[in-house]
Design a protein around this nucleic acid. Structure first.
Length: 673
DNA sequence: GAAGAGAGCGCC
DNA sequence: AAAGGGCGCTCTCTTC
C-alpha cells in the first residue's frame, strides 16, 4: 500500500485483474477489441467438435468462439455464473467468476447444445462475450438477477430478451408452499416457516427443475467445481426454457411472464444495483438515541416493578397481579401486541411505557443502523425476490428497505447533486377492488376524489345535516375525520376478509353494532358483496384464484376452504392486480428514467421512490405519476386513479415532506407520524 | 452453542 | 371453529 491509497477495512490482493482495472480496463478491452484479426477465409467449423464444451481462455479461443457462433443458428442461449460473485459492487469481479454460455441450436425436433465456458472470465475474452450476448436469441438463466449483476459489474449490457427459469417455477407454484400448509399431524401447531421455505425452495432448485422437465444433466458428484456448476446451470436453463414456455402457455401465464415478469426481474435487479444511500452519521445518532430511550424507559418501568417489558411471561404475571390480565386475552391465551397495549393505554400508567419500550426495540434493533449492509459505493443494495410473495408481490431483504419505519425514512438520502422523490397511488386498493369485482358504486366513489369520504357521506346520509351531505370530499374529511376513518377501516378490512368480530375490535364497538355497520356498508356495494361471497366458492371448485395477469394462486389440497383460504381467495384478485400494475409501470419507468439520469430506488407495493438529478426532479415526478396512471388505466379504463407526488423535501426520503421525523424521534421516543 | 418456534415489531 | 391479506427482521424461550 502506498501512502496515497485510501485505507480500507479488508485490502484485496492486487491481482492481475485489479491491475488492469487500475489501468482503466475498459480502455484495455477496447484495445483488445481492435486485436481481432484481419478477415480471413471462412471455413465451416464442425459443430460436433463444440458439442462437448469449449473452454475460452485466450484471445484466439475467443475469436474462434465468435466465428463458430456466427456460423450457427442460435435461438436460445443459456447463461450461468459461478465463483466469487459477491464482489458485486467492486470492480474486481473480472477473473474471479466463471461464465458459461450454452448455445442451443434446433436440430430436427431437438435442441443441440454447444457449451462455452469462460474460465476465468478475462479481458481477452470480453469481445467474444459481448458478441455472444448480442445474438437475436432468448437468454435463459436460472436466477437471472445474480447473472445480471455480474454482467453489469463487468460493464456489459444485459440481453434484452431474457427468461428466468427459477422465477417461472415460482410462477407455476404460487400459493402451494405457504407455511400455513405445514400444520400437519405430528408437529406442533402454528407456523413452520422455515420448513415451508425449504420446501418452496426445493421446487426451485436446478436439479428439481431438471427432473420436472426430463432434462438430463451430467451427474455431479460431491462438491461440483465452479465450471461444472456454471455449465450445468446454463445447460439446464437453455433446455428448460422451451419446455417451461410451453407449460406457461398451457397454464395461461405465458404472455404475462414474457411481457411483464421477465422485464420485472431486470428492473428489480437494477434496483439492487442502484441501491440506496444511508446517512450513516444519522444512523449512529439514532442508534445512540435508541439506547438512551431504552434505558430511560427501563428506569421508569422499574418504578412499577417491571423489569422486562419484552417478556410476555413476565407481563402475564404482572398484569395478573394488578388485576388487568383480562385486557390482554386472545382467543387462545394472552398477548401483549401493540393493538392490545394501545387499547388498554389508559388503564394503567405502565402500559404506554411498555408499548414505547417495545417500539424502541422493534424500530431500531435492526442491522440497518450498524452500516453492515453498506458496500464500497456507500450504498446498501437490498436483494429482491420476484414472485417472493404468494400474491405475486416482490419481497425484499438484506436489508428489507421496504420495511423501514416511516419515521426513519429520512435516513435514506440521495447522492450529492441528486434529489429523492416519491409518488404514491392514492387509495388504489379500493379502486382496484371496485374494478376487479365489478362494483360500479365503488368505482364511482373512487373516481369522485376521496373514496372514504364519499362512502361516509352516503353511509351516514340520514344522520348528517342536509348541508354536509354534499360537502366536497376534502371539506368532509376535515369536518368528519372519524366517520371517514371508520369507512376506511371497514373497506380495507373487507378486502382482507375481516368479519364482524374483528371489525368490532378495530372500531371499538360491540359486535352487533359492527355487524350492522357491515350490513350498511355492503348495502352500498351489493356487487362487491356478491363477488366477495361467490369468489371463494368458485375458487374452492376451481382449485385456484387467477388474477388479471393470468398468474394463479393455487392451493395444494381439495375440500372446503379454511377461513384463511377464503380470505386470501377474496384478497388475491385485488393484491395480484395491484402488483401487476405496479410491475408494468415500473418496467416502463426503468426504460424511461435513463433519459433523465434518474434511478429507481425503493419499490413500495403502491409507491415509487426515485432519485433524480436535482434540476429535473419535478419532471421525473411528473413522468412517474403519468406512467403510474396510464398503467392503471390500461388495465382498468373505468378508473380515474390519483397519484400523490412528494418532492417537497428532496434532501431525503420522507413521509409527507416530514424530513425532521428522525430528529423528532430522537427527542421523544413517543413521537409518531 | 446452534437451531427451531413463537410472538412481536415494522411495511404495503 | 375461527375471528384481516401479503411480507422481513429481531428477540425470547425451548430444545437438542
Amino acid at each position: 500500500m502506498t501512502p496515497t491509497d485510501t485505507p480500507r477495512a479488508a485490502p484485496l490482493p492486487l491481482t492481475k485483474a485489479s491491475r488492469l482495472i487500475a489501468q482503466g480496463w475498459a480502455a484495455r478491452v477496447r484495445s483488445v477489441s481492435r486485436q481481432i484479426p484481419a478477415r480471413s477465409m471462412i471455413v465451416p467449423l464442425d459443430p460436433d467438435r463444440y458439442a462437448r464444451g469449449t473452454t475460452v481462455r485466450s484471445l484466439e479461443q475467443a475469436n474462434r468462439a465468435v466465428e463458430f457462433v456466427r456460423q450457427r443458428d442460435v435461438p436460445i442461449v443459456g447463461l450461468g455464473v459461478a465463483g466469487d460473485i459477491n464482489k458485486m459492487y467492486t470492480p474486481n469481479v473480472l477473473n474471479t467468476i466463471v461464465l458459461a454460455m450454452v448455445l442451443a441450436e434446433p436440430v430436427g425436433h431437438d435442441l443441440v447444445v454447444h457449451p462455452f465456458v469462460f474460465e476465468p472470465l478475462n479481458v481477452e475474452a470480453m469481445p467474444a462475450v459481448r458478441e455472444l450476448l448480442g445474438l437475436p436469441a432468448t437468454y435463459a438463466v436460472h436466477d437471472l438477477s445474480t447473472v445480471l449483476l455480474a454482467l453489469w459489474s463487468l460493464g456489459l449490457t444485459a440481453p434484452s430478451r431474457v427468461w428466468d427459469t427459477k422465477v417461472t417455477e415460482a410462477a407455476f407454484s404460487l400459493g402451494l408452499h405457504h407455511p400455513r400448509y405445514d400444520q400437519l399431524a405430528e408437529t406442533p401447531e402454528l407456523v413452520r416457516r422455515r420448513r415451508a421455505e425449504e420446501r418452496r425452495d426445493a421446487a426451485l432448485v436446478p436439479e428439481v427443475v431438471a427432473l420436472t422437465y426430463g432434462i438430463e444433466l451430467p451427474p455431479v458428484y460431491g462438491n461440483p467445481s465452479p465450471v461444472d456448476r456454471a455449465v450445468s446451470l446454463a445447460t439446464l436453463s437453455a433446455l428448460a426454457y422451451p419446455k417451461q414456455a410451453a407449460e406457461a402457455a398451457r397454464l395461461g401465464c405465458l404472455h404475462h411472464l414474457m411481457q411483464t415478469e421477465m422485464p420485472w426481474v431486470v428492473t428489480t435487479a437494477r434496483m439492487t444495483l442502484n441501491g440506496v444511500r444511508l446517512d450513516l452519521a444519522s444512523c449512529s445518532k439514532v442508534a445512540a438515541a435508541a439506547e438512551r430511550h431504552a434505558a430511560e424507559l427501563a428506569a421508569r418501568l422499574a418504578e412499577f416493578g417491571i423489569s422486562n417489558p419484552t417478556d410476555d411471561g413476565f407481563l402475564k404475571t404482572y398484569f395478573e397481579s394488578v388485576g388487568l390480565l383480562a385486557l390482554f386475552r386472545t382467543h387462545d391465551g394472552y398477548g401483549f401486541d401493540g393493538d392490545r397495549l394501545d387499547a388498554a393505554a389508559d388503564r394503567h400508567p405502565a402500559i404506554p411505557l411498555i408499548r414505547a419500550a417495545r417500539r424502541v426495540r422493534g424500530l431500531t434493533a435492526g442491522r440497518l443502523l450498524s452500516g453492515e449492509f453498506v458496500k464500497s459505493d456507500g450504498r446498501v443494495h437490498p436483494t429482491y425476490r420476484v414472485l417472493g410473495a404468494h400474491s405475486g408481490r416482490l419481497t425484499c431483504d438484506s436489508p428489507n428497505i421496504t420495511g423501514v419505519g416511516k419515521i426513519f425514512r429520512p435516513l435514506v438520502v440521495p447522492e450529492p447533486g441528486y434529489s429523492i422523490g416519491e409518488c404514491d397511488f392514492a387509495q388504489i386498493e379500493a379502486g382496484i377492488a371496485g374494478a376487479v369485482y365489478g362494483d360500479a358504486n365503488l368505482v364511482s366513489m373512487f373516481n369522485s376524489g376521496d373514496v372514504y369520504s364519499a362512502m361516509a357521506q352516503l353511509c351516514h346520509a340520514d344522520e348528517l345535516p342536509a348541508a354536509d351531505r354534499d360537502l366536497s370530499p376534502n371539506k368532509f374529511k376535515a369536518k368528519y375525520p372519524h366517520l371517514r376513518t371508520q369507512l376506511k377501516i371497514c373497506t380495507l378490512g373487507v378486502i382482507y376478509g375481516l368479519g364482524p368480530h374483528g371489525l368490532a375490535l378495530r372500531l371499538g364497538v360491540s359486535q352487533p353494532r359492527a355487524s350492522d355497520f357491515m350490513k350498511k356498508f355492503f348495502g352500498m356495494f351489493p356487487s362487491l358483496r356478491d363477488a366477495l361471497e361467490d369468489g371463494p366458492k368458485h375458487a374452492e371448485i376451481r382449485g385456484c384464484v387467477p388474477d388479471i395477469s393470468g398468474l394463479r394462486r393455487r392451493r395444494p389440497g381439495k375440500g372446503s376452504l379454511t377461513t384463511w383460504e377464503r380470505n386470501w381467495c377474496r384478497n388475491h384478485p385485488v393484491q395480484g392486480a395491484a402488483a401487476t400494475i405496479f410491475k408494468i409501470a415500473w418496467n416502463e419507468l426503468d426504460r424511461l428514467y435513463p433519459k433523465y439520469g434518474a434511478k429507481l430506488v425503493v419499490p413500495l407495493h403502491d409507491a415509487f421512490v426515485f432519485e433524480a438529478p436535482q434540476a429535473c426532479v419535478k419532471a421525473v415526478a411528473e413522468l412517474t405519476a403519468n406512467v403510474m396512471i396510464e398503467a392503471v388505466r390500461e388495465q382498468f379504463p373505468g378508473l380515474h386513479p390519483r397519484v400523490t407526488v412528494n418532492v417537497s423535501n428532496p434532501s431525503c426520503w420522507n413521509r409527507d415532506g416530514c424530513a425532521g421525523s428522525v430528529e423528532l424521534w430522537i427527542e421523544d421516543p413517543l413521537f409518531s407520524l
